[in-house]
């Protein structure tokens, strides 16, 4: 930030047209990516649905794969009882989502910059890695 921008008023940018123009440029790039991906890798279509023919590798969409894989590997908790794997497998992600939804009410500290919240940064990195790990595991497993 330059020395000239001393007063708080000068640290502001007009939303219109500055921000809107940049946003439109981002949209234009995304349109290009969307059309390119669609042209190079068009949406496929497998055989018609058949309730009596289970395919070899059945998977949910990639964004549910992490939760699905966690539910599968939760069978390691079977030493806690017959119902424990299912219970932990579905309740743990549920609690995770609830904590995420209530994040602003849990983390009430006034610090905003990421550099000054190393614990939160670490937590985010760990959660992202676990999510990616479970998704990849579900995909190849």
């Amino acid at each position: 930030m330059s020395q000239l921008e001393g007063t708080s008023e000068k640290k502001l940018l007009p939303f219109w047209p500055h921000y809107v123009l940049s946003e439109f440029i981002a949209w234009y790039v995304m349109l290009g990516i969307l059309i390119t991906l669609s042209a190079l890798f068009p949406a496929g279509l497998e055989e018609q649905a058949d309730a009596f023919k289970t395919p070899a590798h059945v998977k949910p969409e990639w964004y549910f794969l992490a939760v699905y894989q966690f539910l599968k590997v939760a069978s390691i908790f079977s030493f806690l009882g017959a119902e424990a794997p299912k219970l932990i497998g579905v309740i743990a992600p549920g609690i995770g989502m609830a904590l995420l939804a209530l994040l602003p009410f849990i983390d009430r500290g006034p610090k905003r910059p990421a550099r000054r919240r190393p614990l939160m940064l670490l937590l985010v990195i760990v959660i992202v890695l676990v999510f990616i790990g479970l998704t990849v595991w579900g995909q190849v497993g």
């Binding site: 279509l45 497998e46 055989e47 018609q48 649905a49 058949d50 309730a51 023919k53 289970t54 395919p55 059945v58 998977k59 949910p60 969409e61 964004y63 549910f64 939760v67 699905y68 539910l71 119902e83 299912k86 219970l87 497998g89 579905v90 309740i91 549920g94």
Partner: peptide
């Protein structure tokens, strides 16, 4: 994403929905 995935009604759609609905099926 979840509801749209079923609509083409091919094998992938049908079985993804079958296992996808198993996830809430595990709720106690």
């Amino acid at each position: 994403g979840f509801t749209g995935y079923l609509l083409p009604w091919d094998q992938r759609a049908y079985w993804a929905t079958t296992v996808g609905t198993e996830i809430p099926g595990a709720v106690p």
